[in-house]
Nucleic acid binder design. Structure first.
Lengths: 185, 185
DNA sequence: CAAAACCTATTAATCAGTTGATAGGTGTTG
DNA sequence: CAACACCTATCAACTGATTAATAGGTTTTG
């Protein structure tokens, strides 16, 4: 992997654990094995780095979701795949969704970063709208968008709260309760 | 209001907007009209201040919840009162639940702060367990705890995500979807 | 084709600003 | 007068950012 990608890999892990504010050029540099000036070479400002991270994250989400079937016959596999994207962040050293944690820091994010974080939300919610429309046909068309938003919010919240207990079972129980209550298809 | 309370008021507002990490002795001091050394007089370390804030917040939540009726005949008023506690944070300059935002910074919090943040979660979830047990009698006893956790997680998530749009209507629509889906009593 | 010009990737050194914390002093008040 | 509620001054650590320099490769051009 080239230096630029190594920087992004290390920085991404840091943000998912400690947030954007905790990103620190010297710390990333040490982990990658270069100097902080080299990071500025690839990412002139911290905002540039944050934007690159969030942008890549949103792109990857977009690609992942595009690859999932919306066909009702695959509903279980699709919902499981979606949930496991969030679940796996927790499994990876109790980390959070990159954009979920950045959402908490939103007011301090450079606009360019904020824009990409928002794009991640849009990518998720608009995919969920399509999913809900297909899998919950009994839901009034006017309620689809808010249900999609609710599912996304609930999952982000489950991750946030479960992370506090550092116990993946807490996340699983929360998701199970969402299903039983009828929030998730 | 005495200096100590003024400090806590200003600090609380800062954390609810920008998180614990953004707390800054000089900034608080300027807003209160004292010097940073005076803040150290009341709160020797930043961890002491953070702990005091989270502790007070958990206490206030405890008091608020203790005052709410669990009687099914008051269910609507009780649930509304609970939701409005979270809603009002957003109305107050798009702020978040103090402990919700601290949950995102959990790994960087001094232990004494973490402890109080966790207590806030416990206060909420255990009250919700009592509420769910009373208001959702058809729910199996073994599912009450996870439903309570799910409600708390979903509300925290709704706040986090809605905050991103800086539009209270987004929060309201999310809560409305939770109700329609059957997550909230 | 060889020399000149330029680019890529990286370093060392340093600046300016911020931040938590502390030592020691001053004025007020019960 | 002693405890309380402050303040001045200062430290040490950290941080984002900048600058000048360098080694090695590529491109242009006389």
């Amino acid at each position: 992997m080239d230096t630029k990608n190594q920087i992004m890999t290390v920085a991404k892990a840091t943000v998912q654990s400690h947030g954007y504010n905790a990103l620190n050029f010297r710390e990333i540099a040490k982990e990658v094995g270069v100097t902080s000036a080299s990071i500025h070479y690839y990412f002139p400002t911290k905002g540039d780095l944050g934007m690159a991270l969030a942008s890549q994250y949103a792109d990857e989400a977009d690609q992942l979701l595009s690859g999932l079937s919306l066909d009702p016959k695959d509903s279980e596999a699709t919902v499981d795949a979606y949930l496991s994207a969030f679940r796996s962040a927790l499994l990876n050293d109790n980390r959070m969704c990159l954009c979920g944690i950045m959402l908490a820091e939103r007011d301090d994010l450079p606009i360019e970063v904020k824009r990409e974080v928002d794009r991640f939300t849009v990518v998720n919610v608009s995919w969920l709208e399509k999913l809900v429309a297909r899998l919950v046909p009994e839901l009034a068309a006017s309620d689809v968008a808010e249900r999609a938003l609710a599912i996304f919010s609930a999952i982000e919240g489950a991750q946030l709260v479960a992370r506090g207990s550092a116990d993946i079972a807490v996340f699983d129980r929360t998701i199970s309760a969402y299903r039983k209550a009828g929030l998730l298809p």
